[in-house]
Design a protein around this nucleic acid. Structure first.
Lengths: 193, 193, 193, 193
DNA sequence: GATGAATGAGCTTTCATTCAT
DNA sequence: AATGAATGAAAGCTCATTCAT
């Protein structure tokens, strides 16, 4: 399997670095190849085309979020605690890998609709795990019973995403991780006094 | 002033149509010129370059949101009511203009980082009005006193944005306006039961 | 009409020169543009793509043969004389334009099947005029009555083509025109003593 | 000698199949290797380069024509009969091997000038045997004494070639062999009534 | 002898922008 | 002010060939 060969990951990682440092539209295949330490043609032994690299970047890296989230869900804590851990996990992964943060929050969004659609399919798995948490909290009475799952999903993900994007745009100047509990509390209690 | 001449708006509107119908990367200057009924070169009498068109599109159209929001703020209702009206306003403007919805939620996000930074500056005025509502609610005791304005802003805008984007991606199949009260209630009360 | 603008012919002629001097596979669009004294992009204002240039070369130049042949046919001479004039015409046009001779006999044949199919369509018009001569000669008794038009066409065109190709391959060292009457006599009388 | 090892012929035959089925420009070395059941690198143990494969294809297959023609010449018949047998032989070999017919009449002609020059050298042996027939017919009075050997060669070969190419282009729909006697008669008696 | 992973040179086409009219 | 013909830079991908195993 190509995905398991060392050069596959090597190229994926090179792509993240190149895109983060040069921007999406300045991330030429030849630059990625150079960064990965392989010839241009070698890229095409592992990826169908440039688009395939970008989607694979997202798939491979999104895997981190999903795997962690699965572990979080299966531990015995409350739904609220799971939600907190999810926010922390999301923040932590991106706070740890600055390049990746730039790529997912800013650069990859410049891709064309076709690529974005495929990226969204990958995202769906993540959002379905979020739905699992929300449904569980609903059923065990932790969350208010009128809660609209779809809207709650939008709120949770939208808040997380907007918070991280702003942090990235501010050049990651402050400590993102510190915001996790406050974001969690806000999502849980809303704004009303 | 160029902004007041008829051809300026003509070109802006043409840009919205062309981008919505062809996608960001297929919105060539020549197509916009044709749609606007002017020659390619004429575009450059009104705009510095293509980038300038895109930013102007956002500036002109964002004006709608801002103006409406200012009116909303200055009426005598409670902060919570203002927040509801803001969500309704945001939803209404985009639900009314399908082309504009596609352009702001999907297509314009494919622009490069530089353009997006400038678009964000335009957004700032809108977000500052949102901050005004939040501060007011904080001061008059409607909102909980530990509320972190910045995070609340992320939550409100992130939720609105995520909700609309999903609606656009689902080809605007359901009634967006109907979601406004529920979104508002969710933001106000949070998820906790 | 694009075909009538001066730059159209300018580019066609440049293509003939570049292909003749560099060979089919070394005739890059940029070389043709340079030879024509225009920018690379200008080529694409007059031609859909590179393939379109090559087919147009053949169409434009083949026009010479066809037009001359039409004039020949409509004059009052015998079928045999018409055949002689056809051979002379074919030889003369290519003997006069060495570049064109190389292009039609050697280089253009390297094009892919698709282009060759389109070139053949152009050729068909020429061969149909040849058929007209053959049919006439058959009907007025100049040619033997068992003559198979299709085979005769193959013989006439095959002989002409093979003769010219050999002449081009021998670097056009001898006088092609001088061969015309002998070729004509051979076609008319066959080899039998 | 490499030519005698089984893999040599194996690769040659694979090349004919691949070129016939995929066309000249889609006949990559890796495809030929796969069809031959060997590794890409193995090709280069038997052939200097890709060009060498193509020329060898022609050499090996042309051997069939030449050998047959030698046998024909050395039997005791008249020059005219030899010419008929030559046409029949040429038609038969290609009518029997459809792949080969496509390769020699259409695909191999797309090769570059250099390869075609070398192919022509291979052809020369065949054409020299044709010359032998023509000279003999001239000396024994079967052919008219003013016959220009070179032109007669062009006529014979050009007619044969044009006839076969047209047959191949028409997807070999009719019986090529049936045309042999008529082609022979036409070459012998010419068109004059 | 045989393999096949790796190499890297090479080219068509698009499109934002200009400027002579 | 308006036009639109002309410009020219820029990049993804293929495939013949090599060479370590």
């Amino acid at each position: 399997m190509k995905r398991d060969k060392p050069k596959f990951k090597q190229i994926i990682d090179a792509a993240v670095v190149v895109i983060a440092e040069n921007g999406y539209h300045q991330a030429q295949v030849s630059k990625i190849a150079k960064q990965a330490g392989v010839a241009d043609g070698t890229i095409y032994l592992y990826f169908k085309n440039k688009e395939d690299i970008l989607i694979s970047v997202f798939q491979e890296k999104m895997g981190l979020f999903v795997e962690n989230l699965k572990a979080i869900i299966s531990d015995g804590s409350t739904s609220s605690e799971k939600l907190l851990k999810m926010v922390e996990n999301h923040f932590r992964v991106l706070a740890t890998d600055h390049h990746l943060a730039i790529v997912t929050q800013l650069e990859l969004r410049q891709s064309n609709k076709e690529i974005r659609m495929k990226i969204n399919e990958v995202l769906k798995e993540y959002l379905m795990l979020l739905d699992d948490i929300l449904i569980e909290g609903l059923e065990n009475g932790e969350f208010q019973e009128e809660l609209d799952i779809r809207l709650a999903r939008h709120m949770v993900f939208g808040t997380i995403d907007e918070t991280i994007t702003t942090w990235v745009m501010n050049e990651q100047k402050y400590d993102l991780m510190k915001l996790a509990p406050k974001v969690h509390r806000l999502l849980m209690s809303g704004m009303k006094s």
